[in-house]
Structure formats: C-alpha cells, structure tokens
C-alpha cells in the first residue's frame, strides 16, 4: 500500500496547486465576463439615454402643435395656421412609389445574382460594385437623378416630379435591398435546393416554392430598412428640385405622378432654419409625424415577417 500513498502525496499536492490556479483563473475569467456585460449594458444605456433625451425634447416641443388642422393644412407664414398636408401626402406618394420600384427590381436582381449567376469574376465585380454603391453619399444620387430623371427623361417625368423623386430614392436604396435579398437567400441551406433539384425541379421551381418563401422574412426586413432610410432623405430630393412651398396636392392619377411635390424632411428642414421659435415647434411636430410613419412601416414589416415565419 505504501507505493500508493507515496504516489498519492505528490499527486494531491499537485492537485491542490492546480485547483488554486484553476479557481483563480476562473475568478479572473468570470470577472472579465462580468466586466464585459457591464460595458455592454453601459453601451445600451448610453444609446437609450441619448434616444430618450431626443424623444423627450421633440415630444415636449412638438406635441402641443399636433392637431387635425396641423395634418390637413398647407404650410403658411403664420405658424398657428401652418400644417404639413402637402409634405405628408408627398412623403406617402414617394414612399409607395419607391416600394413599388425597389421591391421587384431589388429582389429580382438579388435572386438573379445569388441563384442564377455562376461564381465568376464578373459576378464578383458586380457584387463589389453593389456593396460600394450602398455606401455612396446620397447627394451623388441626387445629382444623378437631376441629370437622368429630371432632365433627360423629362418627357416621361415632367421634370421635378413625384416620379423623378421616387426614382431617385429607389436608386439610392436599391443596393441595400439587393444586398439584403442576397444575404437572406444565402442563409437558406443548400441541401434544400439540392433536394429540389434531385426531384427534377427546375431552378425557377425550387426558388419559387422553397427558397424564396423561406427567405422572404429576411428580404422584407431589408426592404423596410431601405424604405426607412429613404423616408428621411433630404439631400437628393433638394438636389433634384423638390419644392418647399406647394399649395396643392398631386392628383390621384397617372398625371399626379408628374406633379411637383415636397416631403416631410424638407418641410422640417425649412422650419428648423426659420428665425421664429414657433416654427421650431412646428418642425418638432412634423418630426413626430415622420417618426409615427416610420414606426408604422416597421410595425408592418415585423407583422409580415412574423406571419411568414410561422
């Protein structure tokens, strides 16, 4: 038995040392873990704090001016009579058109690039270009829109119209939609496609009935994020010559597409830069309306996403 005990002593001693070290290391690691979670919490608190300060500031300034009149009146030099109807309707018009343009084109391009194009040098080049386009400053798209849609396509768009504005914003957000579509399609396991092909389905059939429906929630999220970006854009629309004061609304017809327009961010920008404090309150009110539209859009997206995820 002696060999055992004589062997056990150094082993025990060794075990003691190791245990201490392990426990110490464990303490340290858990300490770091805690520290990191605190840092992460701090980051959340900080960003939430900024958001809350902004929201509270806007709500305090803006809520008193919100009324039915504010939503249904045209802008005016007298703050108490001024409203946002032209900007609100312009924003809705433009956003509906942007959605109609970007969804089929963006999703179509994304599907083509992800599912149909073989991995080649050209495909890589296109991919890099699209990623770069997503990062181009929006005013550049404004200049492009001014030349192509306002000037060259004048016979179709009638210049500085709802249509020109929507096409310009659609160009701006297309790269985002394409990238989101591709990411979403990429997350669908390849085995699904293989299974479809094994059963003799064509590429179109596999995409239509399996891949696309599964990818749709992700695609929708991307589209809504893109639209959320478009709704706040001012620079490209000012560049193409969206108006600031407009005493009528586009009529609800094809001709309405060729009508001049303004949008909420432009109206807000205009009011913020006025000297009179009353206009600043109107700007805050318009910001609240813009935020509500944005939240409604996001809520729709989340609703649709949840429906398709079931």
């Amino acid at each position: 038995m002696t060999p055992l005990s004589s062997q056990a002593t150094p082993l025990d001693a060794g075990w003691d040392i190791e245990q201490k070290q392990v426990l110490k290391a464990l303490d340290r690691r858990q300490g770091i873990d805690k520290g990191f979670s605190w840092l992460a919490l701090l980051a959340v608190i900080f960003s939430l704090f900024v958001l809350v300060v902004l929201l509270v500031d806007i709500l305090i300034d803006g809520v008193p001016v919100l009324s039915w009149n504010f939503l249904t009146s045209f802008p005016s030099r007298r703050p108490e009579a001024a409203g946002i109807v032209s900007a609100l309707v312009g924003t809705i018009w433009v956003m509906v058109l942007v959605a109609l343009f970007t969804f089929p084109i963006g999703v179509g391009a994304g599907i083509f690039l992800e599912e149909f194009v073989p991995d080649s040098l050209i495909a890589k080049a296109v991919e890099i270009n699209i990623s770069n386009l997503a990062g181009v400053p929006s005013i550049i798209y404004g200049l492009l829109g001014l030349q192509v849609f306002v000037r060259i396509l004048f016979p179709i768009t009638q210049g500085r119209s709802v249509l020109s504005g929507a096409l310009t914003l659609a160009l701006l957000v297309l790269p985002i939609v394409i990238i989101a579509t591709r990411e979403s399609l990429r997350s669908i396991p390849g085995s699904l496609r293989q299974a479809g092909f094994a059963l003799g389905a064509t590429r179109w059939q596999v995409i239509r009935s399996h891949v696309f429906p599964l990818a749709l929630p992700g695609i929708l999220t991307g589209v809504i994020l893109a639209l959320s970006r478009a709704i706040g854009e001012t620079a490209p629309l000012i560049t193409i010559g969206a108006l600031t004061y407009i005493p009528f609304l586009p009529e609800l017809s094809l001709r309405g597409l060729q009508s001049p327009f303004t949008v909420l961010p432009i109206q807000i920008f205009n009011w913020v830069s006025r000297p009179q404090a009353d206009f600043h309150a109107l700007a805050a009110g318009a910001i609240i309306v813009l935020m509500v539209i944005l939240l409604l859009m996001n809520a729709t997206a989340i609703y649709l996403r949840n429906r398709f995820q079931k």
Binding site: V85, I92, W93, F248, L249, E251
Partner: peptide, 13 residues
Amino acid sequence: SLAACGGGSQTAT
C-alpha cells in the same frame, strides 16, 4: 393613395 386623395380634396385654408 386613398389617404392621399382624402387630403387632396382640401384646399389652402
């Protein structure tokens, strides 16, 4: 668009 139209019947105050 209908909402837009509803607003459209309004004219400058």
